[in-house]
């Protein structure tokens, strides 16, 4: 038996959300007393893969096929299914990121293995296999029992902090016998914004709302984000008015984020927005309206003019970030 973890990469680096999945899977493997086997695809340096041992992987199966630098979901589903067969995988772990959301449900239907998407706790195995996840977009949690022999869990990014140790994993070349028919989805173009922190993986998020009055005022948000090494985000009205791109929209109908620190500037805190951010460990709210509902969900609050407060905060945090 084993625990299989899909460790996806981006441009040759294992994603942070995937490292969290490896660590989560390794903890389950330890509970069960079985090996934790990571599966990686595409061109990745051997050292990057053996370093997965620091997060508890005992072995890495590597399909070094350049066609998989963009993980085609159908092909990867086949690879992970074959790894499960080869290693007698009992639990299969993904990050609940873009690749995981695509591959895990396909694998679940293929193996008839129950799937819990977006786990925020380790499985409780005292009575069966019960996993805690967010429901109602973060307004509540559900404890979900997987009732099949094989089990699939995807791990909510930024939920488990990484705690690397000193291990090193053995890396084994793995051939899954992929043919052209396995690549039904052709990637034509990849556009990445280099130098920016991906929102869903960010440990700190600085978010702006209508209180900023217009897209031309986003400089203060970006300056603070830059000083903190943070990602930028926005509320729904801001994305809907086209002030900021849709992929920055955080909330019930946008992205759910769980950073260590969420700084909301000029956002009133409608229930839909709170749903997307209330998994954040610390919330700071800056709003000129003392009655803004967001203050009730915050850890720290400042009632004041964002255009005065935010630049001062940027200067103040630079002291602690050493830049």
């Amino acid at each position: 038996m084993s625990v299989i973890i899909f460790a996806d990469q981006f441009q040759g680096k294992v994603k942070k959300s995937a490292l969290e999945a490896v660590q989560y899977g390794a903890q389950i493997a330890q509970q069960l007393g079985v090996p934790a086997v990571a599966v990686a695809v595409g061109e990745i340096d051997g050292a990057e893969l053996s370093a997965l041992g620091q997060y508890g992987a005992t072995k890495v199966l590597h399909v070094a096929d350049a066609r998989l630098n963009e993980p085609e979901a159908g092909a990867v589903t086949k690879i992970v299914a074959e790894a499960v067969a080869k290693e007698n995988g009992a639990v299969i772990v993904f990050a609940h990121n873009f690749a995981g959301r695509s591959i895990a449900p396909q694998l679940s239907a293929r193996l008839k293995a129950g799937f819990v998407a977006g786990a925020i706790g380790l499985p409780d195995t005292s009575a069966g296999f019960v996993v805690k996840k967010n429901v109602f977009s973060g307004k509540a949690f559900a404890n979900v029992s997987i009732t099949t022999g094989k089990k699939i869990v995807s791990v909510m990014p930024n939920t488990f902090s990484l705690n690397p140790g000193g291990g090193s994993a053995s890396v084994e070349a793995f051939a899954a016998g992929l043919g052209d028919a396995d690549f039904k989805i052709k990637t034509v173009k990849v556009e990445t914004v280099s130098g920016e922190v991906p929102l869903t993986e960010a440990e700190i998020v600085v978010s702006g709302g209508r209180g900023l009055k217009g897209p031309e005022h986003w400089g203060i948000v970006e300056d603070l984000a830059h000083a903190l090494g943070a990602a930028t985000a926005c509320s729904r009205p801001v994305a809907d008015s086209g002030w900021r791109p849709h992929h920055e929209h955080v909330g019930q109908t946008g992205f759910t984020v769980r950073p260590n620190l969420y700084i909301a500037i000029g956002i009133s805190g409608a229930i839909q927005h709170l749903a997307g951010v209330n998994g954040s460990k610390t919330i700071v709210v800056i709003n000129k309206d003392a009655e803004a509902p967001f203050f009730k969900a915050a850890d720290y609050g400042i009632v004041g003019d964002a255009f005065e407060v935010v630049p001062k905060l940027t200067e103040a945090v630079k002291k602690y970030k050493g830049n």
């Binding site: 008839k112 799937f115 099949t148």
Partner: peptide, 16 residues
């Protein structure tokens, strides 16, 4: 393949 055992509400914030 799965069943929901129970629900929980998030703990209330300690206060701002």
């Amino acid at each position: 393949l799965t069943s929901i055992v129970s629900f929980e509400l998030p703990p209330a914030k300690a206060g701002v």
